[in-house]
């Protein structure tokens, strides 16, 4: 699907020339820029405030200009944050990367294998399986958190890494997207040719099909990454031991104690700033994929 979009998008590169041919009035240009400018402030000022606050000495939060720098002690603040409570913040970041990176990578692979099989092989129960998975897309993840907790507590596995990691491997949306994409982008003739060459089905998948499905895989990976990174209810209900918290739950638990331990406020601010960085890096690295890919699910 992205393939279709990309070709169309590139045909749009001619647009600037058209635009010059038919001039827009300066008034509407100014109005448009004004609207976008005002909203740029709306979207970026809070993050700017967070950044500026994180650079301040904790004693200066309330006494200095909120949107401009005072004494620049960002490095000191980061140092303090990383050493607070035995370096628990770094642990949370590590946990988040493990839950999210591992979950998104493995989850994408499993979804792709299933979606691929649904698209490329005929077997009994294929349509039934696909419809059940499609139903799963409509089940909100938060509705599953409580029953998952009850099931894991039956097995005495709550408050473990696996109780959050394993459920986040399942991406019904990923199966849906990879199935559609595989049907459109992996030709049957190519698979037949690989068979004639003596390549096994599994080997063909990993050497040929995965490459053809790559844009869809990146999209599924991003969706999974964001979903797990943002997931709050499942860890909140599952985990008690702060050494296995993801960073969101850790920051949340600090924030609930700010009234008793005021120094935590500074750590929450600096920690919040640092926790945004991994996702921004991922988005920037994979920019050319999500720009076209994010809309893929919306096109019928």
């Amino acid at each position: 699907m992205s393939a279709v979009q990309t070709t169309r998008a590139s045909s749009r590169q001619v647009r600037p020339a058209d635009a010059r041919r038919v001039r827009e009035s300066p008034l509407s240009r100014t109005a448009a820029m004004l609207v976008m400018g005002v909203f740029t402030l709306y979207f970026l000022v809070p993050i700017w405030w967070l950044f500026v606050s994180a650079t301040k000495d904790p004693g200066q939060f309330t006494s200095t200009e909120p949107l401009w720098f005072a004494k620049f002690s960002l490095l000191q603040n980061i140092h303090d944050l990383l050493h607070y409570d035995g370096g628990v913040y770094l642990r949370w970041i590590g946990n988040s990367l493990a839950y999210t990176g591992g979950g998104a990578l493995l989850g994408t692979l499993l979804a792709a294998m299933c979606g691929y099989a649904l698209a490329k092989y005929r077997f009994r129960g294929r349509e039934a399986l696909f419809n059940v998975v499609l139903g799963g897309v409509l089940v909100p993840a938060t509705a599953l958190a409580l029953p998952l907790f009850l099931i894991f507590s039956q097995a005495h596995l709550t408050n473990t890494f696996w109780s959050v990691f394993l459920p986040s491997l399942v991406s019904p949306f990923g199966v849906y997207l990879t199935r559609i994409y595989a049907a459109a982008s992996v030709p049957d003739e190519l698979l037949e040719a690989a068979r004639l060459d003596g390549s096994g089905e599994v080997r063909t998948f990993f050497t040929v099909s995965v490459r053809l499905m790559f844009p869809a895989l990146v999209t599924v990976f991003l969706f999974q990454f964001v979903a797990i990174w943002n997931n709050f209810f499942l860890p909140l209900i599952m985990l008690r031991d702060q050494s296995i918290f993801p960073v969101t739950l850790g920051l949340y638990s600090w924030n609930t104690q700010v009234n008793q331990i005021p120094e935590l406020r500074g750590y929450v601010l600096v920690g919040a700033l640092l926790s945004i960085i991994p996702l921004i890096v991922i988005f920037l690295l994979l920019q050319r994929f999500w720009r076209n890919g994010l809309g893929a699910g919306s096109v019928k």
Partner: peptide, 23 residues
Amino acid sequence: AIAFFVLPFGVLFALFYALPVGY
């Protein structure tokens, strides 16, 4: 091959999606 492709996701889906709904 089909079993290899479908089962990992299928088992996890059954355990962590279908079962919780039923439960």
